[in-house]
Amino acid sequence: MAQSVAVKTRDTENVSIEVPLERPSEWEPEILAFACHYCAFAAADLSGVMRLSYPYNVKIIRMPCTGKLDQSYVLRAFERGVDGAFVAG
């Protein structure tokens, strides 16, 4: 199990957070993004139009709005091995 360390934050006494394990060199994380059609998905398009480059292991699922996100999507993704997920809108 990951160890945790106590950290004093601004408004709470020492909250324990997991210490991230150091990253094995050849490991390729699977990242999943839930993006709102109007803003984040459009921003992803714009970064392509401007030929900006970013790591390839993120894939984007288009949604009508981030409000549409259901916990079961994120949990389903994690259960099936996705390493990280973010929601952008």
Binding site: M1, Q71, S72, L75, R76, F78, E79
Partner: peptide
Amino acid sequence: NKEAEILSSLLRMRASQ
């Protein structure tokens, strides 16, 4: 039923951990 689905998913992940 939705919370049951979420709880079972969390438990499955705990089991795999």
